[in-house]
Every structure is written in C-alpha cells, then in structure tokens.
Simulated scan of single mutants.
Amino acid sequence: MKKYILTLVFIVLSSNLKLQAQEKVTQVQPTIMIIPWVKDGQDIRTILEDDFNKRIAIAKVKEAFDDRGFTTYDFTQKLKQAMNEMALKSDEKTDLKAEIIRLSGADIIIETEVFVQKSSTGNSVKLILEGKDSYTAQSLSNKIGESGKFYTDDIAKLSKKAVESCIEDFLNTMNDKFSGIIENGRSIRINIGFIEDSEHNMDSEIGDEGDLLSDLLEEWMDVNAHNNNFHIQGVSENTMVIDDFRIPLKDPKTGRNYRATKLSSKLRKYIKNKLGLSVKQGKRSEAEVNIIIQ
C-alpha cells in the first residue's frame, strides 16, 4: 500500500512540476524599446532633439513599462550605436531605423506618436501607441491615450495622464498576442523557387522511391515547423510559397531569439545534403526566407 501511495505522490508532484514549467514558459516577459513614430522623409535622428515635449512624452511611456517590471532598452543609446555601426559600413546602404531595431535585441518595438495641443481652453497630450513584433513587424497592440485638457504647462504630467489612460488595455492586448507567439510560434514567410534554366521543378522525382520534390519539402515543413504549424499558400511547377511558417520564439538549445536566418540555413542544407540538389540562398530578412534551387 505504501508503494502505491508513494507512486501516486510522485506522479502528482511530477504533474505539478510540469504545470509550473509550462506556466513559466507562457509567462516569458518580452523586452521592450520605445521609439518615436516617424513619417516618410522624417529624420529619426533629430525628431526628439528638435522637440523637447516629445522627448518628455516618450520618456513617460518608457517609465510606464519600467514601473510594471518590463526590461526596456534606451532608444537614444541604440541610435548612437547604430550610427557608429553605419559609419563603419559607409559603403553599404542601410536603413537607420531598421538598424536601431536590429541592434536593440528587443522583442517588441513600441512606436509612439505624440501630439501636444495648446489652447485657451487648456493644454493636452495625445499619444498613439503601436506595439510590433520587432522581427516580423506583426502588429500586437494599438491604443490611443489622451490626458484631457488642463490649465497647465507641465507636459510631463499631461503625458503621464495620457499614458495611464490607455496603458493597461494596451498591455493586456500586447501580452495576449505575445503569449500567442510563445505558444504557436513566430510567423515567417518561405519562398522556394528555381533558376531560369534549372533541370528541376516541384514535380521532379527525387530518390529511389520517386518522391516528388514538392512532397518532400512539405514533409520537411511539417517536421520543422513549430508545433507542426505552417500553411502553404500555393505550389506551382516552379514555386512553393509558405505564407505562414511558425518558428519558436526562443532557440531551445541556447535560449536566445530564434532567427529566420537559422531556419533558412537548415532548409538550404536539407535540400543540398539530403535531396542532393544544388541550391543558393536568396535575399532574406527576419521575416522572410528565399531559397533558389539550381
């Protein structure tokens, strides 16, 4: 009888530990960077330098995330770092905003648009917050915060009121979406094609069993997609488009962010080493993989 009781206790304890581990995973808190919203042609380097009120407002947004225990990265520091890196690569064309986001290492970028309105009936601050997955630019949350009108020139207080009017709803939506990414994976796009004079196409038979190339690629997608979660948009003789392929948020071996470039390398090696086809890497980004079979 004691043996059965001990076994039952062990099973219960094991189950509790598993549940705690699962809860720990789903409670992963994203890292954040607050950046100013910029319109086309506007210089992200000077937008805060030229507007003290915007600088105050964005500082208050960052403060709200800091107060709630989030790890945040400073935009100004990352801007300086990006500018230094770009100076060393002066012969390469690089988008400054994209470089800032890349160097930040943040999971989520909060773009903040600030409106300071002054009138005879009172002054106010209006904020538009948009949270995006820093790797895929998927929108995670959008909210508008308004301070209301007050007879004061204290922009810091008005900015704080504007933030407080929307921050909880913003965070609830953002956390729900981010939890979905943790559970279901980060969505990227995969395009597989052929050079113009290739001897192969998606209907080519590969190996001794005569499997179609398209079928083998689909099997690979099923095995390697996070939780087998992927969607093929279409397959033709010369292309395969996977418009929604899920990769894990974190690399299970290193704990670091899992990048699309790693998935791209894995797919390219499979086509070359397992299927015996010549292949080259097409243009790639954090949200898209392009493979070209020769």
Rank of each mutant, 00 (worst) to 15 (best):
Q29D: 08
K62M: 12
Q22H: 00
D40L: 07
A21H: 04
I47L: 06
W37H: 12
R68W: 01
D50P: 08
T26V: 11
K24C: 13
Q22C: 02
V25Y: 10
F65P: 11
Q20C: 05
V61A: 05
D51Q: 06
I56T: 09
T46V: 08
M86W: 04
D43Y: 11
D74E: 09
E49H: 05
D50T: 05
R55I: 04
A64E: 02
A64P: 11
R45Q: 12
D74I: 02
T26H: 00
Q42D: 05
V38T: 15
T26L: 11
N84C: 15
A21M: 05
Q42V: 06
E63Y: 08
D66M: 14
E23D: 01
D74H: 13
E63F: 06
K62H: 03
N53Q: 10
F70C: 14
T26F: 00
G41S: 05
P30W: 02
K78N: 12
L48A: 03
A87K: 00
L48R: 02
M86V: 00
Q22N: 11
I47S: 02
D67K: 10
D66N: 15
Y73D: 09
I58K: 04
F75T: 04
D51R: 08
V38A: 10
T31I: 11
D40N: 15
D43P: 15
G69V: 03
T46Q: 03
I32T: 13
G69S: 05
D40E: 14
I58Q: 09
V25C: 10
K62F: 01
V28S: 13
F75Q: 00
G69F: 08
L79K: 08
Q42S: 13
D51E: 12
K60P: 07
I47A: 00
Y73T: 01
L48I: 03
E23T: 11
W37G: 02
K80E: 14
Y73A: 02
I56P: 14
E85H: 12
R68S: 14
D67M: 09
F70P: 14
N84Q: 13
Q81N: 11
K78H: 05
K54C: 02
Y73S: 07
R55L: 10
T31D: 15
E63V: 00
D66L: 05
I58P: 03
M83Q: 15
Y73Q: 13
E85A: 09
I56F: 15
T31C: 07
T76A: 13
I58T: 06
F65Q: 13
M86L: 09
E49V: 07
T46F: 13
